[in-house]
Design a binder for these strands. Structure first.
Lengths: 96, 96
DNA sequence: CACATTATGTTTGCATTATAAACAAGTTTA
DNA sequence: TAAACTTGTTTATAATGCAAACATAATGTG
């Protein structure tokens, strides 16, 4: 039993944190993710775009209290990818 | 409870696989790691060097059947780092 | 009203990383 | 001896990560 490949989209600290959060809360806006992950805005913006481009999340832009607000939600593909990733990486953690 | 940072030395597919293997078998040579990880020689060589440079493993060069043989073994720091990494990444996998 | 400050993100630029191709050095086989 | 195999290292470059700089609009403040 070799090591399963790790989805490169998810094998990144910030993107993994984002997806991990979204799996739990189902939906979240930019500011929430910013707060929970501790990332910079720039990095968060970039990584959200990559997750979107991968088809793992859906981004909806709207307004909240007159301010722009970006809302993120995992797609079914995103949820599935997370599950696959979790299963795969657990193989690597044996021996722990 | 935020997300703990993930040791960048270990947060790499090949290096993690190497360390994971070494935690189990205690000691292994280049060819064994090559076979088990499926990596290319070049990549394996580079990543072993990085693990060594990080102080996570000790490399001993010798001969086996007249051929050069590189033997790898985790240092205590390497073992500790793996444990810390495992604990840290498990936080990200909640919701699975 | 004018001007600073806050809120929310995006784009850009540079340093780091990952990885395979090319190279090296020696051994076995025919 | 020449070809092929074994064991690894170095190098070149493409991809990635990340924060600084930029952009835009709303809100306070004097």
């Amino acid at each position: 039993m070799g090591f399963a490949p790790l989805d490169p989209v998810l094998h990144n600290q910030l993107r993994l944190a984002i997806v991990s959060l979204l799996v739990s809360v189902d939906q979240a806006d930019f500011t929430f993710l910013l707060d929970r992950t501790g990332a910079t805005r720039g990095n968060l913006s970039v990584q959200l775009s990559k997750l979107k481009e991968a088809g793992y999340l859906e981004i909806t832009k709207g307004y909240k209290n007159n301010y722009p607000s970006t809302t993120c939600k995992l797609t079914p593909a995103g949820i599935k990818a997370f599950e696959v990733y979790v299963k795969a990486i657990k193989e690597y953690l044996k021996g722990s």
